[in-house]
Computed example of a mutant assay.
Amino acid sequence: MKRILITCAATTALALLLTMVLCALGNAMAPKWQVEPFTDHITLTTTNTDIQAVDPATGAVLKTPQEGAYRTKETHITVALDGGKTVNAIVREPLDAPADRPACLFLHGSGTGKSSEAFGDVANAMASAGITTLVPDKRLDNYTMLHRDYVSSAHDYAKSLEILRKWPGVSRSETGIYAESEGTWIATVLTQQHPDLAFAILTSPPVVSGRQQMTLAATNYLTAAGAPDAVKQLIPRITSLGTQRMGLAYADFDAAKYRRSLTMPLLINYGVKDTAMPVEQGARLLIKAANQAGNTNVTLRYYDANHQLRTGSNQTVPGLPLEPHY
Rank of each mutant, 00 (worst) to 15 (best):
D82G: 09
D82S: 15
G83Q: 11
G83D: 10
G84L: 10
G84V: 09
G84H: 08
K85C: 11
T86C: 04
T86S: 14
T86H: 14
T86N: 14
V87M: 15
N88S: 15
N88H: 14
V91D: 12
V91E: 09
R92H: 04
R92K: 14
R92S: 07
E93R: 04
E93A: 12
D96T: 06
A97N: 01
P98E: 11
A99I: 04
A99N: 10
R101M: 00
R101A: 02
P102T: 14
P102S: 15
P102L: 11
A103I: 00
A103Q: 02
A103P: 06
C104R: 00
C104E: 00
L105C: 07
F106Q: 09
F106G: 05
L107I: 15
H108V: 13
G109K: 11
G109R: 08
S110T: 10
G111P: 06
G113L: 04
K114S: 11
K114D: 08
S115M: 05
S116D: 13
S116V: 15
F119W: 12
F119H: 12
G120Y: 07
G120K: 13
G120V: 11
D121V: 09
D121T: 14
D121Y: 10
D121L: 11
D121E: 14
V122M: 05
V122D: 00
N124V: 03
A125H: 04
M126Y: 09
A127R: 03
A127H: 02
S128Y: 02
A129W: 01
G130L: 01
G130D: 00
G130T: 00
I131C: 02
I131N: 00
I131R: 00
T132M: 02
T132W: 04
T132F: 03
T132S: 07
T132N: 02
T133H: 02
L134K: 03
L134A: 01
L134G: 00
L134F: 02
V135S: 07
V135K: 09
P136C: 05
D137V: 10
K138V: 06
R139T: 11
N142L: 14
N142I: 14
N142E: 13
T144E: 05
M145T: 08
M145F: 14
L146W: 10
H147M: 10
H147E: 14
